[in-house]
Design a protein around this nucleic acid. Sequence first.
DNA 1: GTGCCTCGAGTTCT
DNA 2: CTCGAGGCAC
Length: 696
Amino acid sequence: MDRLPNTDEEAAAELAELASRIAHHNRLYHAEDAPEISDAEYDALVRRNNAIEAAFPHLVRADSPSVQVGAAPAGHLSKVAHAQPMMSLENAFSDEEVVEFVARIRRFLSLGEDDAVALTAEPKIDGLSCSLRYEKGRLVRALTRGDGRIGEDVTANVRTIADIPDQLPEDAFGTPDVFEVRGEIYMAKADFLRLNERLLREAEDAGNADKARQFANPRNAAAGSLRQKDAAVTATRPLRFLAWGWGELVGAEVEETQAGRIGRIAKGFPVSELFAGPFDVTAALDHYRRIEAERADLPFDIDGVVYKVDRLDWQQRLGSVAKAPRWALAHKFPAEKAQTTLNAIDIQVGRTGKLTPVARLEPVTVGGVVVTNATLHNADEIARLGVHPGDRVVIQRAGDVIPQIVENLSRDDGREPWPFPDKCPECGSDAVAEEGEVDIRCTGGLICPAQRVERLRHFVSRGALDIDGMGGTTVESFFRDGLLHSPADIFRLHTKRDEILARERWAETSVDNLLSAIEQRRAPDPARFLFGLGIRHIGSVTARDLLRAFGTVERLAEVASKAADDAEARGEIEAVDGVGPVVAQALVDFFAEQHNREAWDDLLSEVSPPPLAEEVRDSEVSGLTVVFTGSLETLSRDEAKAQAESLGARVSGSVSAKTGLVVAGPGAGSKLKKASELGIRVVDEAEWARIVQSAT
DNA sequence: GTGCCTCGAGTTCT
DNA sequence: CTCGAGGCAC
């Protein structure tokens, strides 16, 4: 590193420059774009900044990056890509599934009768996964799991956690170039209770006990505490850490087993006392039961047991499927259940007119959160459960989140089934099920205020026009107060500036921001625009496929109108990939409807979606059909597909004589075999990245 | 006609 | 995230 500045002037000037450069790179991370510089270079900037600040403490700027590390502009944390993705785990809910997991591994590795698959087993702590990156033994960055590929930078906050050392102990680790330790940040149950008491006391002292912000459960408390903007607040929160794995390793000593490497990590980090193995399946399941028995007495919340294949070379060979490794499994404890009273069954009307019954429940805590609503899906589900308002029901949170009613304790088949309405509760129109369908829909169409508001919400939603400052709640309240009736009205809101200003919580700046965000959408992406219209069966993917075929929304409308009585036009629509008779009919119906035509013309008098312009770069795969197979490690399927399309290639799911290139990741099977039989070029993910890079 | 696979739609809570 | 329906390949 360069020498430090000698004078205040030099130091101040360099700090100013560093502040602006670091802020610039933070913005790039935040925008989720490919950063311009590597993590190491970024860290060098931050370290340089900190070194100068240490020498010239009186010059620390108000906007200093050291104050803001981990805190990007709007109070959000900056986003950084993981060096190696943090995968999630496949779940199992029964012993049989665990046995099948091992059998699958045996098949995959073609093991003989005598080869035993040894597993480790450890409790799965209910906290936040976090990856700690040590370079040359020093902690340089801590990221949350995020979506697995990109996490949130919580370095400054993590430095306040006592369980996490700043420096890897050299006697156990040496000084590897890169050593990423992964584990769980959590809050112990007792600490959680004390924290809530403290928060309540502090609120009382401040004279607003009723506004005390307490946490619902230890997991939320840990998440809320870690993701603080101000690391000083995190420092006052009792966070803890348990290591369970690792990420990128460069220049580190290599072990042969999971247990071996965890053993070494344990020399620098807390590791669960219940980590055990290697086991055969029977012993692993015994360990599961032991942990389950101790569950209530453990100092922290757990939601299952994780098994991992002990041999690291086997882990390597097994690779991963989609987002989860094949060599690990989370054996979950049975979902927590609770009893409560079904107070009422309300009917919600969705944007397609679907009537969805919702159970309003007497609030009850299940799995750490208070549940008050649960969907009942449709009339069939109500009949299956035989529920009526006033019944006692059993609910559970399935698949970790969404509450569902699993049993009706007051079931009495002598009763008439709950009368599902045959009129829309919002507009009074007939509500009927279409031939062969379970769902009951309001026939009111645009007469129905619920449908109108839901369609407007959909129009501005993130996958559609995505207008900043115009969320679902805003749309709803504007609609209710008559500022908006149809999508086109959004683009006429500028004539109602004073009315909006008169509303609560709308000041000059926010109104101006909203209006300018709306102006930015006068020429919306045509595929998002089409998707936003909410035509049945036309989701985001089909909308884009249609525009690829027709170029502009005007041309699509023309063909769809003609197709009502022109077989040739209909054929043109059905020729689009992924569009069959049902989707084509939905499109035709939409344009045949008078209201829709009027709304369409009105809307197009305000906005002009340009022709679909997909930048197609020339590359060695232009015009070819590409097939992705096996697991992709640095890309999601969607991204890979988007990349291929941006290179003018088509993407297909199966290998045939028409395939031009196969991109195979680990675990590729039959498709890879077929490709080699047909003599098709096969490349790995790294080679694919090169092809994408070299496109012009 | 049968069986994947993909896409659309609806949903809970913080 | 999960379910069901639509599309398409075999």
